[in-house]
């Protein structure tokens, strides 16, 4: 029956909802691994200006002499940008599909067991995307520089999170919390999509997702809040 067309069916399935979700899961895992490394870099702030600026400088030297100066960083940037684009594209396609799949909405809706974090995945994702643009303009390119531009990453950061720029800190805090919520459901969802979910493992998967999300949220909040509260100068 359909056996003769399996090749065609297979290529059709490459664009299926399940394949799109798998692409989101794989790119999501890449981005989570990046966040863990990024958080480790941020926490160098507590070792002082020298350590923080050195860390940032060493990122450019990583892989030398096998890679050119800044080579590793550019590979990372390309991989990350590609991951973000694939992740966002798949999310947009699935979001549109979900909208089309229920043209008439319910008059009464009730949450049975779904978590707040699963509820905010899409809107949270948009907030995070906007935040990433601002964050790169702020601390990477230093195009936006509350408190003044500087060649020292440490100074850029300390200047940007001073109490008089409380709105910058507030935006960071809101965005980091959004990242935490996104990861709480995202990690669980990615592992399920990639086939790791079994009934006997669901408790562990939930714990893994919650622990990673909470650790990253706290880790990323420590740096800007310490500056705003005057613990790091």
């Amino acid at each position: 029956m359909a056996n003769s067309t399996l090749t065609k069916q297979r290529s059709e399935a490459l664009g299926s909802t399940v394949a799109l979700k798998s692409a989101m899961a794989v790119t999501g895992v890449i981005l989570v691994l990046f966040l863990i490394a990024h958080m480790y870099g941020n926490l160098n702030v507590f070792a002082g200006q020298q350590a923080f600026d050195d860390y940032s400088h060493h990122l450019r030297e990583l892989g030398e002499p096998m890679l050119p100066h800044g080579g590793f960083l550019w590979i990372m940037r390309v991989v990350l940008l590609a991951s973000v684009l694939v992740h966002a594209y798949a999310a947009a396609v699935l979001w549109r599909r979900a909208g089309r799949a229920r043209p008439v909405r319910y008059q009464v809706t009730k949450r049975v067991q779904r978590s707040y974090s699963s509820y905010t995945m899409r809107y949270g994702g948009i907030l995070i995307a906007l935040f990433v643009v601002f964050h790169v303009l702020h601390l990477t390119t230093n195009t936006i520089h509350p408190g003044g531009a500087s060649d020292s990453p440490y100074e850029r950061m300390v200047a940007g999170f001073q109490p008089e720029f409380w709105y910058v800190t507030l935006f960071y805090v809101a965005s980091v919390v959004a990242v935490g919520l996104h990861l709480r459901h995202g990690i669980w969802s990615a592992l399920t999509t990639l086939g790791a979910n079994r009934q006997s493992r669901q408790r562990s998967l939930n714990i893994i997702a919650t622990v990673i999300a909470a650790a990253l949220t706290v880790g990323f909040l420590l740096t800007p809040l310490s500056v705003t509260l005057g613990l790091v100068e």
């Binding site: 299926s16 909802t17 399940v18 599909r97 399920t192």
Partner: peptide, 24 residues
């Protein structure tokens, strides 16, 4: 193998949405 491919394709063709592992 053929089953899962064909059933997922048919599922999508019927205009169901994609799963996001929410669990409702």
């Amino acid at each position: 193998e053929a089953r899962v491919v064909q059933m997922v394709n048919q599922h999508d063709e019927e205009d169901f949405g994609g799963c996001t592992n929410i669990g409702e």
